[in-house]
Amino acid sequence: MIQIAVVSGKGGTGKTVITGAIGSLLSGRVVMADCDVDAANLALIIQPDIDTTEPFFGMDRARIDTSLCNLCETCIESCRFDAITRHEDYVQVDPLQCEGCGVCEYVCPSHAITMVPHTCGEIRTGHSRYGPFIDGSLFPGNGNSGLMVHDIRKRAREIAPDIPLILVDGPPGIGCPLISAVTGCDIVILVTEPGSSGRHDLGRLVTVCRSLRSRMMMIINKADLVPKGTLALQESAKEWDIPILCEIPLDPGITEATRNCEPFTRKKSQATVILKKAVDHLKQDLDLT
């Protein structure tokens, strides 16, 4: 099973739009997994029918049984995340601050603390006209996006074992969720756009992906927007030794399709032709033809 992650570091480069388009070009041979769990958007383009919605449990959270607590405050002193507060006649855990480390449970002399499962989001599975689909969303302010990404990818592997390819729409940034999304992928596609901040973020992203030993490819989106910027990206790509899969121009067809909530590749346009060629190339590279 081949796994491809599409990532961008910075948001707004058109990563999800491009993931949806690549997915539609691989129709029937791909499981799409939206791992951008803080803002899952792929479903807006793929329009899947959802078959199941299941709760997702993140790290356990501490719970204090106030009837056993003698207010010694040992837990408060030991919690490195300032998640426990003393009130007049009880102590309380703030579930949004608690990281579930279990230290308070260990130190409490009166065994008043237990670690309990905590629902912090949902994972949905379904199918679209292009194939099976999975995404997840965290309830606002819940951490553990890395854990959730891990879980989504695991389900993507299980949902249709005979489909050869998993396409992961990765989260932004370079932190924990990104690392979970990229680890173990065969190919990482970096979607970028010209502009000084784009290149700056990309450099950091490349460092992280490289440390995870990922094979990288680059797509330059809106390539004709800032010609100087595109040139600079091409140079960086060469310097990093990352092949450029394709350059997609600003294309009204993309805006139009996105507004209509469908992959732009469903209509013929300059961008469609370019991306189709790139995906054919990718298929050949991966022996998928």
Partner: peptide, 10 residues
Amino acid sequence: APPGSSCAAM
């Protein structure tokens, strides 16, 4: 602010 509704945004 960081994008999204993650713990970093919070």
